[in-house]
Amino acid sequence: MGDLIDLVLLAMLAITALQMIFLKDLFAVVMLFGIYSFLSALIFINLDAVDVAFTEASVGAGISTVLMLGTLALTGRKEKKSSHSSILPLLVVCITGAALIYGTLDMPPFGHPNNPIHEHVAPRYIEESPKEIGLPNMVTSVLASYRGFDTLGETVVVFAALIGVLALLGVRRQEENDVPESGFKAHHVLHVVARFFIPLIILFALYVQFHGDFGPGGGFQAGVIAAAAFILYTLVFGLSRAFAVVGPKFLQALASIGVLLYASVGFFSMYKGGQFLDYSKLATDPIVGQHYGIIIIELGVGITVFAVMLSIFYAFGSQAERSNIQ
């Protein structure tokens, strides 16, 4: 049964991807990319990776698609006909594909419990993490505690991306322009529905943030979902009113606070006599210490991801608004 679902999903995935090649309307291409992300999230669920599916659905299908649409608003939605032939790229792709398929012939059998990937640290994580960390969700335990260094690195990368985007685009504070309200902003239905939904989305984000230790979820997903709530607000009520709610300067401060919160947990555990990011020293009982550590660093990750995603959206949005005025 599971195989059948996989097969159908993979076939749909292939059709979506192939269609992307032939379409010249970039708006449709981006929407297909959103569908592609959702389909791959479904496949991840089928492969037992619920956390990954969650992230892919919120990040890949949500934020990436929004940012690409924001870019299209500035660059135009039509792709021009290409003049050069497509035979050489096709040849290169076929050769690479054949080489990769040849490589997969050596792969161990799919889903076999004795595959090499399940031999080294993975059994230890599965057997010891409930005892050492005491959290049901092993992905959170590994992410936040055993591989806390990695996650700190990712958070810094996300922060660095914010710096890059701001250096390239910058957020300009709009003076209240007297453009007549139009489009989205004039629809009363959208206003009412958005007012109803935004608190629910934020509530869900908080649930994902703090329940991530027990079920699928965590800081990355929660940050993105919270950012989605504010992006909805911005789309419906306009950029200048969104700036009044959370200003870009405040968000930039928030992004750095998240990273600092994460790093300071590491230094605090050093101060307590442990190693960097060794949460066991945070409380007298090591398991309680682990819980404190994981909650705080997940909060740091959540704050940073939320602030970075929303700031990036502001940067794209203010560019689009500027070009509309010109």
Binding site: V59, V139, F220
Partner: peptide
């Protein structure tokens, strides 16, 4: 195996960061 899940979860987020740049 939870290990690939962790790696890919963070990779997705880094992916969106690079995409935005």
């Amino acid at each position: 195996n939870p290990l690939p899940h962790v790696l890919i979860l963070t990779a997705i987020v880094v992916g969106v960061a690079t995409t935005s740049v």
